[in-house]
Design a protein around this nucleic acid. Structure first.
Lengths: 331, 331
DNA sequence: CTGAAAGCGCTTACAG
DNA sequence: CTGAAAGCGCTTACAG
């Protein structure tokens, strides 16, 4: 390992104090009221010696690490992977480094990750919280650590967040289905107290008040079994003519089940999905879905967090999503 | 922000030196030869005050950050997202934190990321290198920073790596196709000097020496256009009866193109893919593919890197992959 | 068995 | 305009 050059080396070489070097190199020249020629010389020698500031030392002194913690349900899920990518890119622009963790929808895992990240002295959090994790979120807030929730939030927790207009977009999407003539709808959601889930359900209910519809809720931890049996009920008992899925994981798993059971979409049954998935491109007919502005969600969350890291104000942002009714055309 | 308790606070409270506290709390009790009762008291007070060691200070002193940098082509690509997830989980077990970056297959971006990460003082790198990035990899090695390449490596660069047996698994997979009676094969790969790409091509060539076959190489940056025209050539001119895709991105994009152009698999044309993708489950017939042991790749890379961080030895690991010929059954 | 002290590489209030 | 000095919170060789 090559010895790194420090402020001291530069100071020694020129014969000034490390203080001056620090002022110049950290761009606080005016604050140190350094002479012009001295400043120039310092800059020149710094370049000459290829000086790289030591973040660690700086962090120790300032108490800021310029690192943020991103915690999502599962980074290997394409939806969250896209968020992670956008958060990384955006935070890099602010000179922030991102560390990522996956909660697997478990409030305990979230709590552990938060503790690890706090020990790592992250300057702030971007979190897509699992069900029943209010306590941990409030704990972060009580420590005075900036936080911005993303994609999900708790109505009764006072925090920054950026989400989409879940209720409205679901209502619009379902209304679109009704406009196509469907009259017997099933809605599959997770059993959850999370606001975005409640909003999507409400949107569905608002849109279907005049037709026959049924709401099914399955448990995240047993979704494999429960999704299968629920779809069987929908097909054989409710005899719905369209299923509305509340999330991207449900959408993909549901489509998979329908495909493997040779249910033809939309002939036998139509579907309405939430969030985009690559798999939609593999159907001959368009998969109608609500497309959330993932990149924008991610970018805004970084901006909100960054602002919060310097000033002390919360910000809540609700973005619009888009209803997609056609297949992406390739080439 | 609540004031954090430091070693000093504990030392002050008991009336011992911070040195003793440090020895006890960092588990170097025997090294400091601390008295039993003193040690016990220190531990007790530490717990009482809810002492959290300051990583930053420790890092500054020891020069170790317990952070590793993972750089892949694109974290939003499911293949790399899975690797990232497994690396995170595994490195967490060693008390390491992972920071992630996406190179977008660009050697320049890789170089930038590496520089940012080095400034952040990562203790080591896990990298899936893009084409023509030997220089940056060698630069890392020349600095004495531990590194383990993953999924890809350069034959002529002396580094640790963990990859799969690309040549053998491709050969076995293609032989399987031949065994099914296919006689006119097309191979689509990226134009690349990366060893794994060359190995996969060689595996294809070795297996097809006795039949008619054609190799097509497309450029990563223009893959959209080139993939489409290549497939057209394969269908209309070569009239192949099966296409072999060399990577997961090519597999998914190729399948998408075939689907959207109503080419029936396997009736009109069969395919052989590399790496698993969720989209395979949306075909009524099984998509034959080579499945790399992603989790194992990731875990081993962390282990190799970790060992390298304490001892000074390289390690090269080649894992076996598996040929999948049946669809995953759901529920 | 225990403690005083130096030092990691910065930043910044303070004194000149 | 410039410098000496303290201090962020640890670790660790050294002296007793």
């Amino acid at each position: 390992m090559v010895k790194k050059v420090s402020l001291k080396d530069i100071a020694l070489k020129i014969g000034v104090s490390t203080a001056l070097v620090s002022y110049v190199l950290s761009g606080n020249e005016e604050k140190g009221r350094v002479g012009k020629e001295t400043a120039e010389k310092i800059r020149q020698v710094a370049k000459e010696l290829n000086y790289q500031p030591n973040h660690i030392a700086k962090s120790l002194k300032t108490g800021k690490t310029n690192t943020i913690g991103l915690i999502v349900a599962d980074i290997s899920n394409p939806f969250f992977a896209s968020i992670a990518r956008a958060v990384e890119d955006e935070s890099g622009k602010y000179g922030l480094t991102t560390i990522i963790g996956s909660s697997d929808e478990s409030p305990e895992k979230l709590k552990n990750l938060v503790e690890v990240f706090i020990k790592r002295q992250v300057d702030g959090f971007i979190i897509s919280p699992p069900d029943h994790s209010e306590e941990t979120i409030e704990y972060i807030i009580s420590l005075g650590i900036p936080i911005c929730l993303i994609d999900r939030h708790f109505d009764h927790v006072k925090s920054s967040y950026v989400v989409t207009d879940n209720k409205e977009s679901m209502q619009k999407a379902v209304s679109h289905l009704l406009g196509m003539g469907y009259k017997n709808l099933a809605f599959i959601a997770y059993n959850s107290t999370l606001q975005h889930m409640k909003d999507r359900e409400q949107g569905f209910l608002d849109a279907t008040s005049e037709i026959y519809s049924q709401v099914y809720k399955i448990n995240f931890s047993k979704q494999h079994d429960e999704l299968a049996s629920t779809i069987e009920v929908i097909l054989n008992e409710q005899k719905a003519d369209a299923i509305v899925f509340a999330t991207n994981t449900l959408s993909v798993a549901g489509l998979k089940y329908l495909t493997q059971h040779k249910v033809k979409i939309p002939q036998d049954l139509n579907v309405m999905c939430f969030d985009f998935s690559e798999v939609y491109d593999f159907f001959y007919h368009p998969i109608i879905h609500v497309k959330q502005p993932i990149e924008q969600l991610a970018k805004e969350s970084v901006t909100i967090l960054f602002n919060q890291m310097k000033e002390e104000h919360l910000q809540q942002l609700v973005l619009n999503s888009e209803l997609i009714t056609k297949t992406r055309v390739m080439v």
